[in-house]
Amino acid sequence: MAKGYGLFFKSVRQLVRFVYPSYKAQISGEIAGPAVYVSHHRNLFGPFVILLWYPEFIRTWILHVFLDRKSCSRQYADYTFTKRFGFPRALANPAAFFLSFMITKLLKSGRGIPVFRSSRKIIRTFQESVEALKNGESIAIYPDIDYTDNAAGVKGMYEGFLYLEKYFYKETGRHVQFVPLYASKTKRLLVTGTPVFFREGEDFRTEKEVVYEKLHKALNRLAAQYGE
């Protein structure tokens, strides 16, 4: 597959850029080569703004249901529209049906990487991610436990994404470059922190906790410096 976003994604992004405020990017000069950007979901704000305005091609980890039309429709009808927004079923079902066509086409064109939670298929997520990194493609991950939290600061994060280090190192003998990435609403700025790496020769389980803490603290430092 060719590197870069698909035509449909690029066309929609260009249209949205006409009406949505522009964001500048402040990228650390320490980032060399493909990276795994770790950011704050912030109730969709993070993925939306980063995909819209980050100047480089990034493949985003996306819950697998949104990359399959029928699963996407069920997700919107059974949860998003009904449980989150309180829509009646009579409205939720047709809205979910029609919206699912647009969403799945857009996210596939955006080269999203499907994430299979609580499933053995998560191995496919790591395998596709490793191939992307080997091909020089960067990845964006939003590991918030409470992805609906609108606060600038980052609270709890899932740690599972850090196992990407294990898969990548096994295949390449190189460490993943994890980079904190923060989207500031008030500054209209996308800003990266210093890359974080697993240290050579350290026990993975112990080092995983160290890298988690570094990334978590870095994101909150960026939030304090550039946040609301």
Results as ranks from 00 to 15, higher is better:
Pro21Thr: 10
Ile27His: 04
Ser28Cys: 11
Gly29Gln: 14
Ile31Asn: 04
Ala32Phe: 09
Ala32Gly: 08
Ala32Val: 14
Pro34Gly: 01
Val36Thr: 06
Val38Ser: 00
Val38Asn: 04
Val38Asp: 00
Val38Gln: 02
His40Gln: 12
Asn43Leu: 10
Phe45Met: 11
Phe45Thr: 08
Phe45Val: 09
Phe45Trp: 15
Gly46Ser: 04
Gly46Asp: 03
Pro47Thr: 03
Val49Asn: 07
Val49Met: 12
Val49Ile: 15
Ile50Asp: 01
Leu51Ile: 07
Leu52Phe: 00
Leu52Asn: 11
Trp53Ser: 04
Tyr54Thr: 01
Tyr54Arg: 01
Ile58Gln: 11
Ile58Pro: 09
Arg59Ala: 10
Trp61Cys: 02
His64Gln: 14
His64Tyr: 13
Val65Gly: 07
Phe66Lys: 00
Phe66Pro: 09
Leu67Met: 15
Asp68Trp: 04
Asp68Lys: 09
Lys70Asn: 09
Lys70Met: 03
Ser71Arg: 15
Ser73Cys: 13
Ser73Ala: 15
Arg74Phe: 05
Gln75Ile: 08
Tyr79Gly: 01
Tyr79Pro: 05
Thr80Phe: 14
Thr80Ala: 15
Lys83Val: 00
Phe85Tyr: 15
Arg89Tyr: 12
Leu91Thr: 13
Ala92Pro: 03
Ala92Phe: 02
Pro94Asn: 06
Ala95Pro: 03
Ala96Gly: 10
Phe98Tyr: 14
Leu99Gly: 03
Phe101Ile: 01
Ile103Tyr: 05
Ile103Asn: 04
Leu106Thr: 09
Leu106Lys: 03
Leu106Trp: 04
Leu107Arg: 07
Leu107His: 02
Leu107Ala: 08
Gly110Pro: 06
Gly110Ala: 15
Gly112Ser: 13
Gly112Ile: 06
Gly112Gln: 03
Ile113Arg: 03
Val115Phe: 05
Phe116Arg: 08
Arg117Ser: 10
Ser118Met: 11
Arg120Ile: 02
Arg120Ala: 13
Arg120Met: 12
Ile122Tyr: 03
Ile122Thr: 12
Ile123Gly: 05
Ile123Asp: 13
Ile123His: 13
Thr125Leu: 07
Phe126Tyr: 13
Gln127Gly: 10
Gln127Pro: 06
Val130Ser: 07
Val130Phe: 08
Val130Cys: 13
Glu131Thr: 07
Ala132Asp: 07
Ala132Gln: 01
Gly136Trp: 05
Glu137Cys: 05
Ser138Glu: 07
Ser138Pro: 04
Ile139Ala: 07
Ala140Met: 14
Tyr142Asn: 08
Asp144Lys: 01
Tyr147Arg: 14
Asp149Cys: 09
Asp149Leu: 11
